[in-house]
Design a protein around this nucleic acid. Structure first.
Lengths: 196, 196
DNA sequence: TATCGTTTCGGAACACGGTTCCGTTTGCTC
DNA sequence: GAGCAAACGGAACCGTGTTCCGAAACGATA
């Protein structure tokens, strides 16, 4: 949470320089390994890539979830911020919702194995699940609400359920040419529409 | 495939009695353990429950997928056979499709962890994936085709993609009270309908 | 029923990945 | 430069899947 150099200037003891350097190195290494081997790549691989010992990973990122969060934080933030922007720039709330969901799906399917781990009941990934929910659920809820208010979609859809469902649909969407998650998600979005 | 007592009387050397007994015992034990601990329960747990050594499991079921298949074969068969029956007994092909998909979903969500393993890219589960596809895909395709012919749904939906999507939606549907896979699947089915 | 060859068994051993521990090193402060 | 705390690295530990091999059980034969 606190990287040691910014902060509110309160009780942050500023980390040692090698610690900060390693943290950065680890993030880069993890990002690289995630691209080639997926987010479930062995910890040792990431450590080797970064040229550090495995314990250093655990020291900086107590759970694997923390590491994944740190690696993708920027992109998740961008996705979260895109919500309101899309709502403003789109012709209709439904269009905004659709575009936002596509953004989310594109993010998930390009990160090998991320969707699979997002819903994992493994307590080790609880933090990851929580982060995504905390950050994106309100955005999704806002879009849903706007579309429902505009009478474009059913009012009985729960944002959590939708996000969870979309996340699930993205699982394994890489490495299977016969399966296109985007099409299925599109089907769900179509199912949301009120029948006229 | 061949349990050693039936067969075409060709080259089946009839297995030893203890082997047959253990196979049955293992199936029962696995079924029991799957109910309480899910299909990803440790091999040792299943062996212990059956009162046999771990090697005995591997001897009878070379991969975990083979064991899972054997345990659920009856139910999968029943699901497959329900397809044509529903098509005949339902008012419309679309109704039959909906009911069949619900059957499939009910099956998946009541088997802890099965959906998660069904789509797994782990080669060890390839046989499981293949079995489900082999057995159920034609049934699903038939229902889709009938509904499409009747003009009730889009004609551009691929059966594989639908099954895969439905399977994905069922992942983790147990142990999360906020997530109801049935509702999401319903949304997909609704999305299939042609807009009038 | 006693013997023997073969099948099957059981558990130890191995492989592999996550996680923790501890002696050593490094950076910071004085 | 000395002292101290933070941080490090890699060995060790643990749980799980998988394989190996000596022992036991089976069933045919005499």
């Amino acid at each position: 949470m606190n990287d040691g150099d910014g902060g509110a200037g309160s009780t942050a003891p500023r980390k040692r320089s090698d610690a900060r350097r390693n943290e950065r190195t680890l993030l880069d290494a993890a990002a690289a390994v995630f691209v080639t081997s997926g987010v479930e790549a062995p910890v040792r691989d990431i450590a080797a890539r970064a040229g550090v010992g495995v314990a250093t990973i655990y020291r900086h990122f107590p759970t694997r979830a923390d590491l994944i969060i740190a690696v993708y934080r920027h992109q998740v933030e961008a996705c979260a911020e895109a919500g309101p922007a899309l709502l403003e720039s789109s012709a209709t709330p439904h269009a905004a919702l659709e575009r936002w969901v596509n953004l989310f799906v594109d993010f998930l399917v390009t990160k090998h194995g991320l969707a699979a781990v997002l819903r994992s009941d493994d307590p080790g990934f609880g933090a990851l699940h929580a982060y995504f929910i905390d950050r994106l659920l309100p955005v999704c809820a806002r879009l849903l609400e706007a579309a429902a208010t505009a009478g474009e979609i059913r009012a009985d859809v729960d944002a959590y359920e939708l996000m969870r469902g979309v996340g699930n649909l993205c699982i394994g969407a890489d490495n299977d040419p016969r399966y296109d998650a985007r099409r299925l998600v599109e089907l769900v979005i179509a199912g949301l529409r009120v029948r006229r």
